Amino acid sequence: MADKQDHGHVHGVVSSPVDASAVFKWAVGLNAGYVIVEAIAGFSIGSLALLADAAHNLTDVGGLLIAWWATVAATRPPTEEYTYGLGRSTIMAALTNGVAILVGAGAVIWEAVQRFSDPVAVPAGAVIIVALLGIAINGGTALMFRAGRKSDLNSEGAFLHMAADAAVSLGVVASAALMLFTGWSWLDPITAILVSMVIVWAAYGLLKASLSVALDAVPASVDHAALKVWMEGLDGVTEVHDLHVWALSTTSNALTAHLVIPSGHPGDAFLDHVAEELREHFGIGHAVFQIELGDGPACRFAPANVP
Rank of each mutant, 00 (worst) to 15 (best):
residue 170 L to H: 02
residue 198 V to L: 14
residue 246 W to Y: 01
residue 264 G to D: 08
residue 221 S to P: 02
residue 224 H to D: 04
residue 235 D to L: 00
residue 227 L to N: 06
residue 201 W to D: 01
residue 241 H to L: 05
residue 244 H to E: 13
residue 168 V to H: 12
residue 200 V to G: 00
residue 170 L to I: 09
residue 208 K to V: 07
residue 184 W to L: 02
residue 229 V to R: 06
residue 243 L to Q: 07
residue 240 V to G: 05
residue 275 A to W: 11
residue 276 E to S: 10
residue 262 P to Y: 14
residue 193 I to Y: 05
residue 217 A to P: 00
residue 275 A to G: 13
residue 263 S to M: 11
residue 203 A to L: 04
residue 209 A to K: 12
residue 199 I to S: 04
residue 199 I to M: 01
residue 245 V to W: 00
residue 226 A to W: 11
residue 275 A to T: 03
residue 205 G to I: 01
residue 251 T to I: 12
residue 244 H to T: 02
residue 226 A to C: 10
residue 181 F to N: 01
residue 217 A to H: 11
residue 189 P to S: 13
residue 168 V to D: 09
residue 169 S to P: 12
residue 187 L to P: 00
residue 177 A to E: 03
residue 259 L to A: 03
residue 239 E to G: 05
residue 178 L to V: 15
residue 194 L to I: 14
residue 169 S to I: 07
residue 210 S to L: 03
residue 238 T to P: 15
residue 179 M to Q: 08
residue 251 T to Y: 01
residue 180 L to I: 10
residue 244 H to A: 15
residue 164 A to F: 04
residue 233 G to W: 00
residue 205 G to Y: 04
residue 239 E to S: 14
residue 251 T to K: 15
residue 245 V to P: 15
residue 231 M to D: 03
residue 253 N to E: 10
residue 184 W to G: 00
residue 214 A to I: 14
residue 185 S to Q: 14
residue 240 V to E: 09
residue 270 F to Y: 11
residue 272 D to Q: 14
residue 219 P to C: 08
residue 245 V to F: 02
residue 187 L to E: 09
residue 224 H to T: 04
residue 208 K to L: 07
residue 276 E to A: 08
residue 271 L to T: 09
